[in-house]
Write a protein that binds this DNA or RNA. Structure first.
Lengths: 329, 329
DNA sequence: TTTGGCACTTGTCAATAAAAAGTGCTAAAA
DNA sequence: TTTTAGCACTTTTTATTGACAAGTGCCAAA
């Protein structure tokens, strides 16, 4: 259990360090509290014993540890109103009636990325949550068509298909069949249903049914599992602790580029705003992920902000709350 | 005019420097030529006078200047066969019959990016080259529909539209009208045609025509001008001259992130492989862009490889030739 | 025209020293 | 019992020095 003064010292150190990433000494802190640097030093020693602070070397100032950030976020952080400037920039996006929800979300997270210099991510719903709404085909030339899949959540994906000696009529027949028989099925189960419900039927009266079946099978099995949108991919370079350590930057960039990983990583059913500091997330032990789920009409997904552990927690949480509120009404 | 030996020296220096970015001294060169280092030094001095070589400081070895690279590319470079390993990896992509052309291109450039550690870009055709093929609408719920635009080149784009109190019937009518009257029009002229050919008609017998017209107007005017695909966005970090200079990296990253700029930059009607070294391109004076146009059936576009000026010119040109050849037949 | 040789420049590396920042601990003060 | 002043000690940062390596330019001889 920490004393009142220790709490105040920890809070000051975390906030100072977030503003400027240099270890914080006892002197600066003592000026803000009404006590001497020696007193502060004693408390800092105790905070270090508790694992909330760290030293970079024997005689350096203190830096928050991972547990320190966690304690700060859980107990010390005060949420403040979003500042007027931030709010204004976001409102421009929200006021735009033309935009569909998903565009509003993407655009506003783009704005946040620019304002904060953190990387932002928007994750659509997963393919097992999306139901097949409709499939459309558009012929391009004699040998190729484009198949367009639309899900009930409004997710659209398309794929060009190369077919030899298949009549457009047969294609239309097959598509009609799919739309009639298996629309409403979760996307990731469609492939299986194709095999058991469509293949046997078209086998009888569609020429080249093998080729056609294969084509559609691939269309669905290649369906992107998650629609993922990353904004400000390279913002990490703006963070001093990263720009001085290129290897860290590379690690994080690689995580972001590999879409599979990203999907596994940010998955959480909680509707509140969640904060994963360092090892608490699966991206990298040097970053913090702040994320939340949104749900609006049918559409749902996750938005996340990725920054250094030394993130402006209060500001980001404020923004996420604001965005979420605006989305959901 | 350069002497034969000067040509050989310049070639050696460029190639050595490309392999390993440290200034090249007269001694190493003299070992490969049958002459003394003093002779080489004289020639190097002359090459520097001609602006083809540079020194990093008074007593350093030489480094190719921009003009030096240009001279190398124009006069000295020998194209060699692609090495077997590179070729094998690319063939795996080309052999895959399932893939549509555009996917083959994207995938193969992904492979090239991984093999070379350069950033690669695939640019689809511009919107004035794409003709409207067909527009489809899929209703999602009472108040929103998804509009899907397909062009003759097989480019697909979709947009969710929010409509209030518009009947699906009216939507279908309007879409039918568009498909009948203005399919075949270049995408960037559709908006105008909508105004003069569709608006007057639906004005008469479609309720809420204003809203509907606006919605479709935006669908087309927001149509992405260029489909752009970037692979290996962060590969620049693997290049020693960049990873030691973060500001350069940031500049290049920013250029890559801004899609508008990218479009202006890589625009060229020449069908050959073109090389833009340093200031010759508009991305950054520290990079080289090697690019070419491809054309296959209806589809056409540009592929580009972006790397440091110290790029492996011969290897990259070889790869591009190989890819182009494979695409076009 | 080429080459050996040498003076000269610059960058790199290691060692040293001094200064700055900050700590921990002790003993005195509150 | 808590707080504080003071001081010894540690580590980092910065600058200085000197030695060495790499490389050049130029001159005079081959």
């Amino acid at each position: 259990m920490l004393t009142e003064r220790q709490n105040r010292i920890l809070k000051l150190i975390v906030e100072k360090y977030i503003k400027d990433p240099i270890p914080v000494g006892s002197k600066v802190i003592s000026k803000e509290l009404n006590c001497s640097s020696a007193t502060v030093r004693n408390d800092m020693g105790e905070l270090e014993n508790q694992g909330l602070l760290e030293k970079t070397h024997t005689s350096s100032g203190r830096v928050p540890s991972e547990a320190g950030y966690r304690y700060y976020v859980d107990n010390l952080m005060e949420l403040k109103e979003m500042n007027a400037e931030d709010m204004l920039k976001l409102q421009i996006v929200f006021k735009n009636q033309q935009l569909a929800i998903s565009d509003v979300i993407t655009k506003s997270l783009q704005v946040i990325s620019d304002m904060t210099n953190y990387t932002t991510v928007v994750l659509g719903s997963t393919s097992h949550e999306n139901l097949l709404k409709q499939i459309e085909v558009v012929p391009i030339d004699e040998e190729s068509i484009i198949a367009i899949i639309v899900t009930d959540k409004g997710h659209v994906e398309h794929k060009s298909i190369h077919l030899e000696q298949v009549s457009m009529e047969d294609v239309k027949k097959t598509v009609g069949l799919i739309n009639n028989l298996i629309s409403g099925t979760p996307i990731d189960e469609v492939s299986r249903k194709l095999e058991f419900e469509i293949k046997p039927i078209i086998g009888n009266y569609v020429k080249q049914h093998e080729q056609l079946y294969n084509a559609f099978y691939h269309v669905f099995s290649d369906f992107t599992n998650h629609e993922v949108n990353i904004m400000g991919r390279t913002k990490m370079l703006e963070q001093p602790e990263f720009s001085s350590n290129i290897d860290k930057v590379k690690t994080v960039f690689n995580k972001l580029e590999s879409p599979d990983l990203l999907q596994d990583i940010i998955e959480d059913d909680d509707k509140n705003i969640k904060i994963y500091i360092g090892n608490e997330n699966n991206i990298d032990s040097d970053v913090t992920v702040i994320q939340t789920k949104y749900k609006k009409d049918g559409e749902e997904g996750t938005i996340a902000i990725i920054g250094p552990k030394r993130m402006e927690y209060d500001r980001v949480v404020g923004m996420l709350e604001y965005i979420k509120e605006n989305i959901e009404r």
